[in-house]
Design a protein around this nucleic acid. Structure first.
Length: 799
DNA sequence: GATACATTTCGG
DNA sequence: CGAAATGTATCA
């Protein structure tokens, strides 16, 4: 038997090599298992991605697999297949793709152990290289030291090269050992005192002599009114887990049974005819195991969550598992604290003990525990952010991507996969339906639905639902210093008078600046790309992020001849001041990204100024007015998605304004009141927006009418980066059916001491795009003088 | 990514 | 001229 193995010496290595499986390891050899293999002179961990009966031709001597760690993680076959697709689609190594699917820290590692070699040789080495003296001294006891500890102890020397040099002279010996990365799922049981309070105290005084640390734990346990986690108890007593464990062993503490989160009995949800029909269609696909993709669009006032929650319940009732992906922000919110605390419509409580919750904050042990629960089938429903798409479900029957348009599904670092697209592919591989749900779907998904690749399930607003009143305030002609129009101030006053709250949305800081005309509201756009130009203070230039066009900033508006040109819509600092002055009743709170810490303060405020839509919580309830200070900030992003982002943002703002139940109010201040994104959002008309936006995308051949990739070439020397980028651009331009924009200095041209040059590749479709990129990058010398090329297929942001 | 081996560079 | 620095191919 032979195994195809992807060795993993760090990730960049890209090859599938064949090894002999020794008799003793046959049992454990499986596709998806981790194996330790010799590579050159080293021993490296790797993944088995295929099993063969006969050896490949043209290889003289095959090496043997050294070990397959028992109890190591084994990726399901389907995940290995998924990784192959990812490597193809995102142009990364199979190894990188496989690593995405593993919980962090689960890979086997090689530990290097160093000990002193021949004494005479060491002596000579120390004389020749006095800087290595300390290192040799440290080894002089004759004991082994790991590479890791040496690196930590001698940060001033390059331990790797030192050891090489020393080993060549027999001054040290290096041995390799496998550290099985079988991090135990660390248990953190709920504990309580085993004896009444008085007796516990008595025990504590007895312990005071022998172990002060354990005595403190006893006192803490006696004081605790309800069961405490072992880790929390240790912390409270300023003691250690070991002390807690010792007392548990002695029977002075005992484990309290975990309260099983009970699936809450829910009121039957009354589906409308539309919703019921949508649900039936999804359920049918679940039953037939059809790999269909549903685009469930539920504008404000409809109930898409209820539909997919029911579909998940249906899948579970048929003995299948379901994966539910949610945007990062939904997990980060206060809802996450304990899965048992989850409120409706969050589905956590619905499924009781059957839920496995995955998120980035999970400690390694717990992640591992969840992995096991999913793998064994104990967990029926997996809920998590993007990485949950790799959950090792053996009986998957349904995948849901909630908020499918959300940017957080895209991985920020390489390989830059989009979990939503990975979900669709996983559905295809597994033969299970995928539900993409969104209040305002991405143009890509919308287009796929129109092309009948996806099944569109559009839910209408529920009967009785009332959208907010929308006021679009034209800020053209207002004096440049004004932040809040009279209409907005009036709306705030009204909201407060009515006992409601106002949520004012400010542009996030650090957005690039567009140049716009205060009279006609037009922002300067690139004639080639139809994208807003960014203003660069240095040299007073306007630049295009797409094609690199650079022109001097005009003194007057090219559209209307007006001379009042603004760099920003409004000043960002003055809103708070303005509101305070204008409405004495206002208790203003400026809210930054993290809400968690100061709930009390939040509860008291009645005007909240924030950069993003704050989720409704107990503290921030009754928001009856949402005010968008300057919609132009979103509209003028130097990005072909600017209109889409604006439209979605305003739709969500509208939904937020209507959430409080009674009639809400949305005020949008803008220099471009006639822009289609603003008009459509104000009217709550998705169809109108998609029609205009899709036409615009088609006209400029932007996605979804083309496939796009962003390339960033970086190097230590600016010249080098530019030179390689130019050469690469030439090769790609020569490919068929390709438009290449750039290369231009990347918006953050110098980052971490490296110069970056960026270009944008547009192709008719993914096939042509990938072909061009692959042949161009394959022709490139792999690692030319520290120049690196990063590829971002289907980029979301071009900055 | 690491390593062995080939090539160029640089001080003497 | 030889050691050191840099480049390049290969890993089964």
């Amino acid at each position: 038997m032979f195994a195809e193995v992807v060795p993993e010496p760090g990730g960049r290595f890209d090859a599938v090599l064949t090894y002999v499986i020794p008799e003793a390891l046959r049992q454990r050899a499986a596709v998806g298992a981790q194996a330790l293999v010799p590579l050159g002179k080293r021993l490296v961990p790797g993944f088995i991605v295929g099993l063969l009966d006969s050896p490949p031709e043209g290889v003289e001597q095959l090496k043997q697999i050294v070990d397959i760690p028992a109890g190591g993680l084994v990726l399901p076959r389907s995940i290995v297949a998924l990784a192959r697709w990812i490597a193809e689609h995102y142009i990364c190594t199979l190894c990188q793709a496989l690593r995405l699917a593993l919980p962090s820290g689960a890979t086997a590692r090689i530990k290097r152990l160093v000990r002193l070699g021949e004494g005479a040789a060491a002596q000579r080495a120390a004389e020749e290289r006095p800087e290595y003296g300390g290192l040799l001294d440290a080894l002089s006891t004759g004991e082994e030291a790991s590479l890791q500890t040496l690196t930590r102890r001698f940060p001033q020397i390059d331990v790797m090269t030192a050891l090489d040099w020393l080993r060549a002279r027999k001054a040290v010996k290096v041995r390799e050992e496998i550290t099985r990365a079988v991090t135990r799922a660390r248990l953190d049981p709920l504990l309580e005192a085993a004896l009444p309070v008085a007796e516990m105290r008595a025990e504590a005084t007895r312990f005071a002599r022998r172990s002060a640390s354990q005595a403190r734990v006893l006192i803490a346990a006696a004081r605790a009114k309800r069961p405490v986690r072992a880790s929390a108890l240790a912390k409270r007593a300023r003691s250690t887990r070991a002390a807690v464990a010792a007392l548990l062993k002695r029977g002075l503490l005992r484990v309290r049974q975990e309260p099983a989160p009970q699936a809450r009995k829910r009121r039957p949800f009354m589906f409308t005819l539309h919703e019921g029909a949508a649900l039936r269609e999804i359920n049918q696909a679940v039953d037939q195991a059809e790999p269909r993709v549903f685009l469930l669009s539920g504008p404000p006032g409809s109930a898409p969550e209820q539909v997919w929650i029911s579909a998940v319940e249906h899948a579970v009732s048929r003995g299948k598992q379901a994966i539910v992906l949610v945007p990062e922000i939904s997990l980060a919110g206060p809802r996450l604290a304990h899965s048992a605390d989850l409120r409706e419509p969050w589905p956590g409580r619905r499924f009781g003990t059957g839920v496995a919750l995955l998120h980035s904050g999970l400690p390694e042990g717990q992640r591992r525990q969840q992995w096991q629960r999913i793998e064994s089938g104990e967990a029926n429903v997996v809920i998590g952010a993007r990485s949950a798409i790799f959950a090792p479900c053996p009986r998957i029957g349904l995948i849901v991507v909630d908020g499918e348009h959300d940017d957080s599904y895209k991985q920020e670092d390489a390989p830059r996969v989009n979990a939503r697209d990975v979900a669709v592919e996983r559905g295809r591989i597994e033969g299970c339906p995928v539900v993409l749900s969104s209040s305002a779907p991405s143009l890509e998904s919308q287009h796929s639905a129109q092309q009948a690749r996806y099944r569109a399930l559009s839910l209408p607003a529920r009967p009785g639902w009332q959208g907010p009143a929308v006021t679009v305030v034209d800020t053209r002609g207002s004096s440049p210093g004004t932040t809040c129009s009279a209409k907005l101030v009036l709306a705030v006053k009204r909201a407060l008078d009515g006992g409601g709250r106002a949520l004012l949305l400010m542009p996030r800081k650090g957005f690039s600046t567009a140049l716009l005309c205060a009279d006609c509201g037009q922002a300067a756009k690139c004639p080639n790309c139809d994208v807003c130009l960014t203003y660069h203070l240095a040299g007073r230039k306007l630049m295009c992020h797409h094609c690199g066009l650079s022109q001097p900033a005009p003194d007057s508006c090219p559209a209307c001849g007006g001379t009042r040109l603004l760099l920003r819509g409004v000043g960002t600092q003055r809103v708070e001041e303005h509101i305070r002055r204008a409405c004495p009743a206002a208790r203003v709170l400026r809210l930054d990204a993290d809400v968690g810490g100061k709930r009390q303060v939040v509860g008291k405020a009645n005007v909240i100024i924030s950069t993003g839509l704050v989720e409704a919580t107990r503290e921030i309830s009754k928001v009856t007015l949402v005010g968008v200070i300057s919609a132009d900030t979103w509209l003028n992003r130097p990005d072909f998605r600017a209109a889409e982002v604006t439209f979605r943002f305003l739709m969500q703002a509208a939904a937020r304004a209507a959430q409080a139940g009674r009639k809400g109010h949305l005020v949008i201040q803008t220099y471009q009141p006639d822009h289609y994104a603003i008009r459509a959002a104000a009217a709550g008309d998705c169809a109108a927006f998609y029609e205009v936006e899709l036409a615009a995308r088609r006209e400029h051949a932007y996605p979804p009418f083309s496939a796009m990739a962003g390339l960033v070439v970086s190097a230590r020397a600016q010249q080098r980066a530019e030179q390689v980028a130019k050469a690469l651009a030439e090769t790609i331009r020569a490919e068929e059916r390709i438009t290449l924009l750039g290369p231009i200095p990347a918006p953050l041209a110098k980052l971490k001491g490296r110069y970056r040059s960026q270009m944008l590749v547009l192709a008719d479709d993914h096939e042509h795009l990938l072909r061009a990129l692959r042949s161009a990058t394959a022709g490139m010398p792999r690692n030319l003088g520290g120049v690196s090329v990063q590829v971002d297929v289907d980029p979301l942001s071009l900055v």
